[in-house]
Nucleic acid binder design. Structure first.
Lengths: 157, 157
DNA sequence: CGGCATCCTAACAGATACTG
DNA sequence: CAGTATCTGTTAGGATGCCG
């Protein structure tokens, strides 16, 4: 496996999304006090799966970079300065394997390789942007909470 | 640090979301061929931040479990069978620190502790569900792509 | 230019045992 | 019940060098 061998590889692929009771990783949702309309216990499996898919350190960033259009290997390397060549290679291969990214190599000298989002990959963008939007809106609040927590924790030390 | 010391801790917290050029982790979005309306290079920073926040192995699952209502420590432990007590403790503390989860301990014998989502935590749910929905819709396709890739990779071996 | 292959370390994460 | 503490294995991921 490449990246994200997080959690045991979910055992089977059932037809639609109706995942019959595979014994794998499951959250039995509690029905205690609060009301919750939308969260379903099957969601837990789905969450596990996208995390395996793009929950690693770089996948979403690569997808984001490719959202702007096709790019060559070295373009991505400079577009995401913090990534190492190793991880860029691994991440691209990982995304390519899952059908999120297309790779086209041109038989030229010097060689040229272009990466692009597939339709599948592009369809993920809105979900990613949803996350980014949340972060954009709430990052300040999160920071405040963390600082407050750390300060009160420092008091008891 | 607890979980997700992934990526250097983003150095500063600027006022709104207008993150002035902190030298930190940034994706310089490429403008090459394809059109892209919505992805902004600042999104990369935001993605980095939610990944640090809930991109680890368990956070989203715990949030999902709490979406159904408040729960005790042992409830969560049985609701997410695959998690170890260690990781449950760590994850809860991590989420609590960031203000996504509330912890209330009742001074009783035997002790009772209830965890619940804060407003902040609940506001993340829709983004998470968005991801789960994508996974639910496209998991089969992803599997197909991976199988196809693996098969063609096996041929060249 | 566009990669693999190798080495190496920090951390994530499981198992187990103990405590207030 | 609701955690901590410790010990340990596994792996994500960085640095570097070589090769087609």
């Amino acid at each position: 496996m490449f990246l994200g061998n997080i959690g045991r590889a979910s055992s089977v692929s059932n037809d639609e999304g109706r995942a019959a009771s595979t014994g794998a990783l499951r959250v039995n949702v509690l029905r205690l006090s609060g009301p919750c309309e939308r969260w379903d216990e099957r969601d837990a499996d789905f969450i596990r799966e996208i995390l395996d898919l793009v929950g690693d350190k770089w996948s979403m960033l690569v997808i984001g970079a490719l959202a702007a259009g096709d790019a060559r290997y070295s373009d991505l390397d400079t577009a995401i300065p913090a990534i190492s060549r190793r991880m860029l290679t691994l991440t691209l291969k990982h995304l390519q394997r899952s059908g999120l990214v297309d790779r086209t190599a041109y038989a030229e000298v010097p060689p040229r390789v272009e990466y692009s989002l597939t339709g599948l990959g592009a369809s993920l963008l809105s979900a990613i942007e949803h996350l980014a939007a949340w972060s954009s809106e709430h990052r300040t609040e999160v920071r405040r909470q963390q600082d407050a927590y750390d300060k009160s924790a420092a008091r008891s030390a």
